[in-house]
């Protein structure tokens, strides 16, 4: 089994708090990993380090067997969808422009049509990104993340503030990408039901890693499920 990501004794310290404390886990090719944990558990911090946005950490992060401190080439194989993409609302960029930004080579322009059709946003290609609904925008950002045909897709709570219909469509797209195109997906989410339906692996993160393994094993463990259910996570947040 090809190891896509190997995280070994990762610790990230801020001046007053340890955001990530000695976390180690491996993601294999074809895994659909759901990372769950309350707000402030360190999910976005973990992703920032994996994406080379934060380089101040102890431990090692390897992609495809290479330490990311040694080579940044792995970034070409990654598609990333942030929690809420920040951009100027009036930015004069069409859907086509935005998806094209994700393209490494201009010559691959036919890939844009292909991906827009796959995500059912082909008819929006000449619309301005700022005019679209949250769900449509998120699909555009997924299209941008996918247009280079990445081997890994990293999604940071990608459905925050999006309508249910778009969420359902989004999840079915993710499932297809993982099962038919064998794209490895690393996805952080608050939604345990969705994780149960989609992910084949689960990681429970709350600064340290409380569980990492097959999703069946996680969902069989009532104690863990109870601990990480949305209600108790909110409870946890209030305590912080």
């Amino acid at each position: 089994m090809l190891k896509v990501v190997e995280i070994d004794h990762l610790t990230i310290e801020y001046p007053d708090v340890k955001a990530i404390d000695d976390v180690s886990f491996t993601v294999n090719q074809g895994d659909f990993l759901g990372i769950i944990g309350p707000n402030g558990a360190g999910k976005s911090t973990l992703f920032a380090s994996m994406l080379n946005l934060n380089t101040k950490y102890n431990g090692t992060i390897k992609f495809f067997g290479t330490d990311i401190r040694k080579s940044k080439n792995y970034l070409k194989e990654i598609g990333y969808v942030p929690q809420k993409p920040i951009f100027e609302k009036n930015f004069p960029a069409t859907v086509n422009d935005v998806v094209k930004m994700g393209l490494q080579k201009e010559s691959d322009e036919n890939k844009i049509d292909e991906i827009l059709q796959q995500l059912w946003i082909h008819e929006l290609s000449e619309r301005r990104i700022g005019e679209l609904s949250g769900g449509q925008q998120q699909r555009v950002f997924i299209a941008k993340a996918l247009v280079n045909k990445p081997k890994v897709l990293i999604l940071d709570e990608p459905v925050t503030g999006i309508d249910q219909q778009s969420i359902d469509l989004f999840y079915s797209i993710l499932k297809e990408l993982n099962s038919k195109q064998n794209i490895t997906i690393i996805w952080s989410s608050h939604d345990l039901d969705a994780v149960n339906q989609l992910a084949n692996h689960v990681a429970c993160l709350n600064r340290t890693l409380f569980f990492h393994g097959e999703s069946d094993d996680f969902f069989k463990n009532d104690e863990l499920v109870k601990q990480y259910s949305e209600a108790s996570m909110q409870e946890h947040m209030h305590h912080h």
Binding site: L51, K72, Y80, P82, P85, F87, F91, M101, G102, L103
Partner: peptide, 18 residues
């Protein structure tokens, strides 16, 4: 063009795309 436009649109995402 792509580098200028992308880093103007969203710096973080542009960084992730190398």
């Amino acid at each position: 063009y792509r580098q200028l436009l992308y880093s103007t649109f969203n710096e973080e995402q542009a960084k992730v795309n190398g």
